[in-house]
Computed example of a mutant assay.
Amino acid sequence: MFTGLVTDVGRVSAVSEGTSLRRIRIESTYDPASIALGASIACGGPCLTVVDVQRHGNGCWFEVDAAAETLDRTTVLEWQEGTRVNLERSLKIGDELGGHLVTGHIDGVATIIAREAVTAGDNPWGPTARFDIKVPPQIAQFIAEKGSVCLDGTSLTVNTVDNDCFSVLIIPHTLSVTTWGERKAGDRLNIEVDLMARYAARLADARNAG
């Protein structure tokens, strides 16, 4: 379980070939002594299992396996050497829950259709950015204005909704400490809808069926 608060931006340094299973090596500033084999790390959104870890420079590299379901439903298949990914370690009991409950189970892939710089007066910290995002029709029903959504592992608040499109506003801090600073129109994003929305819709379907 995660919160969607990114704690590091990793760099993919190696990717094995394969369409049913890929082993991916990611360089990070995490302390390797704190990462156990079998640990879960959200990498660009998907929850992946650490299968190897070694000290590297001032941090480490760790390897994860992405199986067919992950490769089919996320952007992981597109990752290559040099790809930067948002990282988050799994929650511990007692940790601060600053975002929203995130499972790392990706519902699909969304696409950025526009990015707009938003300047607020004489803001000395830099502009915020508004992103317009299009989602697959089967996911759109779970997106609600002022609700939560997780995009590429980042917990965000939905600003507006228009059919299968919605917008989010990214503050300067988030732009600087995540991969959002480099995002542009046409980029594809891993999307996980709010857990409560998913279960509420499933209960409604069951009630209607009954």
Rank of each mutant, 00 (worst) to 15 (best):
S176T: 09
P172I: 07
Q54Y: 06
I139T: 08
S90E: 14
S90I: 11
Q80N: 13
K92V: 13
L71I: 13
E81W: 04
K134L: 11
P172G: 00
T70D: 00
H100Q: 06
P137N: 07
T75L: 03
L151W: 06
R89G: 08
V64N: 00
A144E: 10
R89C: 04
C60S: 13
A120K: 11
G99L: 09
H56E: 14
R115K: 12
A140H: 13
F131C: 09
G98Y: 05
D205I: 13
T128D: 11
A33C: 15
T174C: 03
A209R: 14
T29Q: 15
C150N: 01
N159C: 03
V102E: 00
A36K: 14
L91H: 10
Y199N: 15
T74W: 01
L101P: 04
R183V: 05
L189A: 00
D122W: 10
P136T: 06
V53G: 00
L189R: 04
V53R: 02
R183E: 10
D95Y: 12
S16C: 07
P32R: 12
R130M: 08
Q54A: 05
V168P: 01
G181D: 01
L189F: 02
D194V: 10
T111A: 09
C60P: 02
S40K: 14
R73H: 08
E192K: 02
A197R: 04
T119L: 10
L203T: 13
R202E: 08
